[in-house]
């Protein structure tokens, strides 16, 4: 495999993990991680949509006019989400029932639209497919980690299977919203410690893991400078 593609694939797992580093897709991350089965199901569904939408958007990047690119992306993404939804409803009804409205909400998942805008419309089809796989796996991995902590410590079970001893000493708040935010914060801190990103506080655009790919197209210094100037004017 080409080294660049491997790098793109691995980027999504830790270095540019969509949930724990880019902090995208927070809503489904908190809502579907009360149990491991739902979290993995959500991760796989979002990964399929991410790969397909990245491929199509990358293939059409030279045809789609800039002014209508966002509506075009939304139509493509919504189409794939509906396809995945119909397939799950038909063949995995239990997962369809448990994911509920969050399945449809993949349409507005920032990770998918974000990768379409930041990566797929600037890179070739193969690289975009690898980005989709990497980001999707990163998303699934983050959800799996969050769900494992929340289900094992919050409900004393794993994938719905009760764990002896732990089930008698579980911390139910971990399954509720405050516990979700707590686990989310702890995981972000752990990933920051592993990847050595503590120094990035206040580093501005240069500290952003997607600096090279963002809408400023690498003009981070200028963007930062103008932001500082605006801030200075406001303070004056």
């Amino acid at each position: 495999m080409n080294k660049n593609y491997l790098k793109i694939l691995l980027n999504g797992l830790i270095k540019e993990n969509p949930v724990l580093v880019l902090v995208l897709g927070t809503c489904p991350s908190l809502a579907t991680t009360t149990n491991v089965t739902d979290a993995v199901g959500m991760g796989i569904a979002a990964t399929l949509v991410l790969i397909c939408s990245n491929i199509v958007i990358s293939a059409l990047r030279n045809i789609i006019p800039d002014k209508v690119r966002i509506p075009c992306y939304i139509v493509v993404i919504a189409g794939f989400v509906t396809v995945v939804e119909m397939l799950l409803h038909a063949f995995v009804p239990s997962l369809y029932d448990s994911l509920g409205v969050f399945l449809s909400l993949i349409v507005v998942n920032c990770i998918i639209l974000g990768r379409a805008e930041m990566f797929a419309n600037k890179n070739n089809v193969v690289a975009s497919a690898f980005d989709g796989i990497g980001m999707g796996l990163g998303f699934t991995l983050a959800l799996f980690a969050m769900a494992t902590i929340r289900e094992v410590l919050g409900a004393g079970s794993f994938c719905g299977i009760s764990i002896p001893i732990l089930r008698d000493y579980c911390v139910p708040i971990l399954r509720d919203a405050p516990g979700g935010f707590f686990v989310f914060g702890v995981l972000i801190a752990i990933v920051a410690a592993i990847t050595g990103k503590q120094h990035l506080k206040g580093a501005g655009c240069a500290g952003c893991p997607s600096a090279a790919l963002c809408g400023k197209l690498g003009n981070c210094a200028q963007a930062e400078q103008s932001a500082e100037q605006e801030e200075g004017t406001a303070n004056a």
Binding site: P65, A78, T82
Partner: peptide
């Protein structure tokens, strides 16, 4: 372009 994308996506949904 937008109309063509909508038509193709609609066809995909109809098949599914």
């Amino acid at each position: 372009v937008l109309t063509a994308i909508c038509l193709v996506v609609s066809a995909l949904l109809a098949v599914t």
